[in-house]
Design a protein around this nucleic acid. Structure first.
Length: 363
DNA sequence: TCTGGGGTCCTAGGACCC
DNA sequence: TCTGGGGTCCTAGGACCC
């Protein structure tokens, strides 16, 4: 029994929110991101700006060179989160099987309420209208029998898209598309496949599985299956967060010194706040450093006891920093990442003192 | 004044244990 | 005198996504 999966993706989300909230920006090229003189990059570009070749992840300096009359806006993530929640709730009013991928994207498994992709199309149409009426935002939707196909369909339909790939038509739909359209194939994967003569998804579907497995290891079989339009992954409404982190690129490179150490303490505080807001503690503290040369390294340590304390996180990160930093080094980025998250231990100060001095009791 | 910030997942090597 | 193998944990790095 084929499933009916929707992939919904808000068009140029951050930029659209800015145009929504600031009517004077409508119809104009809008670029959301950090300023050019703080080494900012583009987080989102309106379609008017994209005409000039501006796209996300592009350095802001380059974006403004390509499109000098673009309006640059600093991101307002709280506002984007608010609207994102509103849209996700609309999705959930259709089905509880909603898997958000980011603020602007989600999978919906609507198999229970639509027997085929054509019924899925009707749902998708209705969804687009509801989102537009409730928020003013435009959502592109792809309809297919699995996640991979639905996602590629929503990509192909943009902007304001609604593309349906019917049961049985998956392989034919995918075959002419470049392998880069597949989730997980980036520049490196594309280059590796090009080396063995594979450029389209159809060529990958027809490739020798052993050869692909040699190039992609354990991922090979799933990759070929996806190229053939097969993807059994379920829509997962609940996913556990695995890590929490914060990092900062400085407007100018810093040597190890008071300024860098202060930045580290501030980042530690941010991370601690995020841990607390998620109700978790960490047992793994990682330091990320990017040198002026852009070379990036990471160092991490495992803690004997989980923590969400800013001071302790700062101390651990500082220890790692002291181990690697040389006096001649200049850093452009510093980050702290926490992994091995555990639910915060319900207890008062007394309990945590006790915990610190005695081995944790068996659960 | 090229190159953000939030993540996930995978690989690979070394330590250590039995 | 030469040198196992399986399993787990830890660490570092990299590809990729939005």
């Amino acid at each position: 029994m084929p499933r009916t999966i929707l992939h919904a993706d808000l068009d140029a989300f951050y930029a659209s929110v800015e145009q929504l909230d600031h009517p004077e920006l409508r119809g104009k090229p809008v670029v959301v991101g950090g300023s050019a003189d703080t080494r900012g990059v583009v987080a989102a570009a309106s379609y008017e700006a994209r005409k000039f070749g501006v796209h996300s992840a592009m350095p802001m300096r380059e974006a403004l060179r390509r499109c000098p009359y673009a309006v640059r806006v600093s991101p307002r993530f709280d506002r984007y989160r608010e609207l994102s929640h509103q849209v996700m709730e609309i999705f959930r009013s259709l089905t509880p099987l909603v898997e958000p991928l980011s603020l602007d994207e989600a999978y919906l498994d609507v198999s229970a309420i639509s027997a085929c992709t054509d019924e899925g199309e009707a749902l998708a149409r209705q969804l687009k209208v509801t989102v537009k009426e409730a928020t003013g935002l435009v959502v592109s939707v792809g309809v297919g029998t699995n996640k991979s196909v639905a996602k590629i369909a929503s990509d192909r339909g943009k902007p304001d898209g609604l593309l349906v790939v019917r049961f049985g038509e998956e392989a034919r739909f995918l075959a002419p598309l470049p392998i880069r359209s597949l989730w997980g194939i980036g520049p490196k994967g594309e280059a590796r496949l090009a080396k063995i003569g594979i450029r389209s998804i159809g060529e990958l579907a027809a490739a020798d599985p052993d050869r692909i497995q040699t190039t992609f290891g354990s991922w090979g079989p799933a990759l070929i299956a996806m190229a053939r339009g097969i993807d059994e992954r379920e829509v997962q409404p609940v996913r556990e967060r695995k890590s929490v982190g914060a990092e900062r690129t400085f407007p100018r490179d810093l040597p190890d010194g008071p300024e860098l150490r202060t930045a580290l303490a501030n980042i530690a505080r941010e991370v601690a706040e995020r841990l607390a807001s998620q109700g978790v503690e960490t047992r793994e503290i990682g330091l990320k450093l990017r040198y002026a040369s852009f070379k990036t390294i990471a160092r991490q340590m495992t803690l004997a006891q989980p923590t969400d304390d800013a001071e302790q996180i700062a101390r651990s990160a500082e220890l790692l920093l002291t181990r690697v930093a040389k006096s001649t080094d200049r850093f452009r980025l510093l980050g702290i990442h926490c992994g091995r998250l555990e639910p915060r231990h319900q207890g008062d100060e007394q309990a945590s003192l006790w915990e610190a001095e005695t081995p944790a009791p068996a659960p």
